[in-house]
Design a protein around this nucleic acid. Structure first.
Lengths: 147, 147
DNA sequence: CCACCTGTTATCTTATATGTAACATGTTAA
DNA sequence: TTAACATGTTACATATAAGATAACAGGTGG
């Protein structure tokens, strides 16, 4: 995951839906794409993954997507698992098995990476969509104090 | 960083150097590349970053690279910072600033990502090169109990 | 029926990682 | 001093992935 912002766009989509009651009403993929500055197809593809993960509910033909759970029960980890590759780091699986180092570095790295991954996931599970929506709405008030 | 294993290869290089006293002696980029199953140029490029980060010491013309610090004082975080982009996740910086969501999602995401990044880095700082070398050598004993 | 939507697939462009080659320059030993 | 070999750096080709975009089958609702 070097230059990808799929996760950010997915959170953006969920935030858009979650904030719909407050500021938005058009929940079409085109409207959401307008907020992301992207295109409706990308939005629909990401929403497809979010739907498969059970985070949103939608129907063909109707611009009526909704969250499947309260914003307090959707975490950044849920979105991450729905959208991204599971591993933050990748072990080189092609090392030379004839070399003592090459033959054993993979398991050593997997072990190390697993520890980092675990802590990152714990932290991601602490951040809910409600936190994000709240920050966005608060930031919004700063920009539009009378709106 | 989707399919990159730069970090793994960099740790591999350091492990190779760190284990040199025990099992290896040829510290040329060609020999190290042989262990990684890669090529000397890649090894030299990674070593260039590791050198800039102060983790290894080397001289032109001599196959005599060495660690600048004891293995207990080189952490996975040091290698990560030497080799990888600083951020695990990337915020979409092109969101629509005319939309209340698009205008405020970036700072909300930066805040969330920072928290995850911080915990990941804390965990990375707990893993030392000594841990990796030890795991590799132990794995080695399993494979070559009499060697 | 028609305008609009979703869900899915395909293609193009661009960005990045890696493989590979090349070369200037330093080192060492015969 | 010369040959063999090393590092350090740059350039280029290739493979992979993300994102932009278009297309279209099929659902929805006025």
């Amino acid at each position: 995951m070097k230059y990808s912002h799929r996760l950010s766009d997915a959170v953006h989509i969920l935030t858009y839906i979650g904030a719909a009651e407050i500021v938005e009403d058009d929940l079409s993929s085109r409207a959401i794409a307008g907020s992301i500055n992207s295109n409706p197809s990308l939005v629909r593809r990401l929403m497809s993954s979010l739907k498969n993960a059970g985070l949103i509910t939608s129907e063909p033909g109707r611009a009526a997507v909704s969250l499947s759970k309260p914003t307090t029960e959707i975490t950044l980890l849920d979105v991450y698992k729905a959208i991204e590759e599971p591993d933050l780091f990748h072990v080189d699986e092609e090392t030379n098995q004839q070399c003592p180092i090459g033959a054993n570095i993979q398991s050593a790295l997997h072990k190390a990476y697993d520890e980092v991954q675990q802590q990152a996931e714990i932290e991601m599970s602490k951040i809910t969509l409600k936190d994000i929506v709240k920050d966005v709405v608060n930031g919004n008030k700063k920009h539009y104090p009378n709106g």
